[in-house]
Amino acid sequence: MKMKAIVTVTLKPSILDPQGEAVAHALQNMGVKGVQSVRIGKHIELEIEGGDEKALRAKLEEISKELLSNPVMENFHLDLRAGG
C-alpha cells in the first residue's frame, strides 16, 4: 500500500529565524498591520511503499531526526497517512 508522510520542520522557539524576521519586517513596511511574528519552516513530503505502519513510523521518526531536521535547533512533526 502506498503511504504518504508529511514532515514539518520548524525552528525551536528560542532559535532566531532571520527568514521570518525579514518577512515580518517587509510586511510591516507594506503596511500590513497586526502580524505579531513570522516563523518559517520546511514542509517535506515523502511517498513510501508502505508495510507495517508501526515500523514505518519508527523509521520515519529516525530519518526526521537524523536527516530532515537538526535536533539541536529544530523540531519536527510527522504526519503519516494512506494514499499517494
Binding site: K12, I15, P18, A22, V72
Partner: peptide, 15 residues
C-alpha cells in the same frame, strides 16, 4: 556536548 549545549546562535548576515 550535543545535549548540554546552549541554544544555537543563528547568524543573520542581512542584519
Amino acid at each position: 556536548s550535543k545535549a548540554d549545549r546552549p541554544a544555537v546562535q543563528v547568524g543573520d548576515p542581512f542584519v
